[in-house]
Design a binder for these strands. Structure first.
Lengths: 111, 111
DNA sequence: ACAACACTTAAGTAGAGGCTTAAGTATCAT
DNA sequence: ATGATACTTAAGCCTCTACTTAAGTGTTGT
């Protein structure tokens, strides 16, 4: 019927939460540990872990545990896929507006 | 503490649902009535109305009722804001990778 | 050894989200 | 006026989400 792209569901769902966007925002400046991500987030650590799990499930963030600390980083490809989905639809719409404008110019601007 | 941008919450939340993305997808090709949006969506009309309400609340879609039909269209500015939020974070991360690479080139590629 | 540290798991709860069916309300066509 | 059309409102249901607290598990420093 229509493309039911589950990866995009997860990516946009992940970005819909302000705490998770704050985490992505922080990670955009470079890798960080779970505690570092948690620090600015008025929330218990398990709460942060759950947000991290959502971000990892969406593919937007990856993490690796070394010793007792887990280090997280951004996964730019997943970010890019979400970005492009929007960009493509917007481009389509704007091309349509351009065609409309061109049509109007042609039919009214005719000397 | 951190920017709690409610507009982005709503936009990403709206895009997180496959039915709503299908609606945006359709609208990208041009305006459509509620029935037209509903047609491909294995769902009752009230269900579609609720999705439309979410899309309008997010600012991604606007609609206008004329007579008994409501015509919907894309609001490219809201689409653009969501797109840019992602683009900015991705750009930040990629600039960071570039600096890292430049640093490594400089310190190891030294003849 | 043993305490501090950095997560991790488990379980519970209140509220939001995605549907449904049933019953409206205007418009439009004849 | 009457019926069909195109939404619209209301109510209910069940699942999923975003937290919480309490109780672990493995690592590291002294």
């Amino acid at each position: 019927m229509f493309r039911t792209d589950a990866a995009l569901d997860l990516a946009f769902q992940a970005l819909a939460d302000p705490s998770r966007r704050a985490m992505v925002d922080r990670l955009a400046t470079g890798p960080a540990t779970v505690s570092e991500l948690a620090k600015p987030l008025a929330m218990s650590l398990p709460g942060v872990m759950q947000h991290l799990a959502v971000l990892e499930a969406s593919g937007l963030v990856a993490s690796e545990k070394i010793g007792r600390t887990r280090t997280c980083r951004i996964e730019p490809k997943a970010l890019s896929r979400a970005e492009q989905w929007i960009a493509e639809r917007r481009a389509l719409w704007e091309r349509r507006l351009d065609r409309l404008e061109a049509f109007l110019d042609e039919t009214t601007g005719d000397t």
